[in-house]
Amino acid sequence: MHFSHHPAIWTQYPELAAGVLAARGLHRDVQAESVIARHEAVARARLAASGGESEWPEVQAWRRAFARMGLKPTQYRCASESLLRRFRKEDALPRIHPLIDVCNAISMAHGIPVAVLDVGQVRGDLQVRHAQGTERYLTFGDEVEHPDPREVSFVDDEGNAHARRWTHRQSGLSAVRDGTSEVLVVSEAMHAGGAADVERVLESVREALDAIWQVGASSRRLAASDPRFAFR
């Protein structure tokens, strides 16, 4: 099984920086609050210093990318911006699953989307590509949607769309749940210096996996010249 971005994505978004990590042996019965709090503190300090997430270069770059996709950036926000916006207003996020909570905190600290997918729900290879419009996207309310033609999504070999509007929203199909043991973590950035920041995101995830679950992980940064990552 491989993860990749379609060549057309690299061509249309040459500024894209992407990194992927795979890990197994995950479970829910862990204590993760200290790690979460550390990354949330970074996000809180950055928000206070900047006046809001909309001023962050990481967020601004994704807004420009969404505009190029024909989406209104203030209607469809990348996942990290949505998290930061809620965190700024409420100074907290609801706890979902320790791994999701950790990755959400890391995403906010860096201002970069971090997707976590249950590998057990991915059928065959997974590729970030333009949708044809026939793919199936399962919402968290168990409703089936179809991405718009040319919409960017994470699509597996059976036509399951694991995201809507690229980094806007993940699918309920591959969401991490209590029984999840093997995951694929994807981080993508569009801003100048994004490659180094994606590396830092992956390192933060690796450190959390080691500290909380005592499991290792394989990871790599992707590029147009080397776009594939084997995860099973």
Rank of each mutant, 00 (worst) to 15 (best):
M1N: 00
Q12T: 14
P14T: 07
A17G: 02
A23E: 04
A32T: 00
H39M: 03
H39P: 01
E40F: 03
A45K: 10
A49N: 13
G51P: 07
W56P: 03
E58Y: 07
V59R: 06
W62K: 02
W62L: 14
M69G: 02
L71S: 02
A79S: 15
S80V: 00
L83R: 05
R86F: 05
R86E: 10
I96Y: 04
I96N: 08
H97L: 09
H97R: 10
V102L: 14
A109F: 03
A109Y: 08
A109L: 04
H110D: 12
L117W: 13
G120K: 13
G120I: 14
V128S: 01
H130E: 15
A131G: 15
A131D: 07
T134S: 14
L138K: 14
L138G: 05
V144T: 09
E145W: 11
D148Q: 13
R150V: 10
E151V: 07
F154I: 08
V155F: 02
V155H: 00
D156F: 10
D156Y: 06
G159R: 14
G159Y: 09
N160R: 12
H162R: 13
A163S: 15
A163Y: 07
W166Y: 15
S171R: 10
V176W: 01
D178Q: 09
T180R: 02
T180F: 06
L184H: 01
V185P: 09
A189F: 13
M190H: 04
G194Y: 05
A196P: 07
R200Y: 01
V201G: 02
L202R: 00
L202K: 01
D210Q: 14
A211R: 05
V215E: 02
R221K: 10
S225P: 03
P227C: 12
F229K: 01
F229I: 00
F231Y: 15
